[in-house]
Design a protein around this nucleic acid. Sequence first.
DNA 1: GGCTTGTATTGACGTTCATTGATGCAACCT
DNA 2: AGGTTGCATCAATGAACGTCAATACAAGCC
Lengths: 125, 125
Amino acid sequence: MSKQELKILGQDGDGACCGALATAPLDEEQAADLAKVFKALGDPVRLRLMSMIASREGGEVCVCELTPAFDLSQPTISHHLKLLRQAGLIDCERRGTWVYYWVLPTALDRLAGFLAVPQAAKASA
Amino acid sequence: MSKQELKILGQDGDGACCGALATAPLDEEQAADLAKVFKALGDPVRLRLMSMIASREGGEVCVCELTPAFDLSQPTISHHLKLLRQAGLIDCERRGTWVYYWVLPTALDRLAGFLAVPQAAKASA
DNA sequence: GGCTTGTATTGACGTTCATTGATGCAACCT
DNA sequence: AGGTTGCATCAATGAACGTCAATACAAGCC
């Protein structure tokens, strides 16, 4: 079910890490990859989808519970879920008739770590 | 110099806080406000600008140092800087002939805190 | 005052994106 | 098999976005 996802926010820690934003200037490739993830979060509908999935007890939500929460058509919700999945922020699995989505916590943590301003830089603020 | 900036990422801590994404579903207004900030980061040029400014010794960068780092026209860079400023991520000040930009660390920290998955939710992952 | 340099704003253009109705596919039910 | 429900894909449309050339504004210099 999980086809193409971005690898930047994967499990291993070779590339960008803690406070990378304020550590050194990003090169074009890093910036392009990260921009895709932030762009995925840069839409109110997708942010609400993320929070609805992330805040769910058990961590999984059926699409049938997400769609009626919006004044949008079902294809639109499906489209947004696809973008979030391609950004590597969520994943899904078909279980019988229904499809369940969950967030990838490591992706969120890595994004958070990327943004957090390192202590060293806080002095000169 | 600083006209309109988003207040979501301001100094005080009444609204969304640590791990808010995974704590409860966002309402439409919260989602719309936050989406603007993530959207501002959802462009490779703006991400590079952010990292160039944030990683700068002293925390300030003159526009005249930013513009030549890109294969883009000066108005385009100015446009991106304006968007970052309107998102509340950076601020600027004119000093004689030149304009200096710096990041607002609290904004980044609040974004990072918003994304970070709280410990409670990590168990069920 | 005029000239030059640094930065922001305007207006236009091409591309990307969000949204929809129609359609397709998968799984259940009888 | 036929019908129904849940979800994804397709094709089209209007809005938003990134970019630039031209222009305007601000500050220093002659």
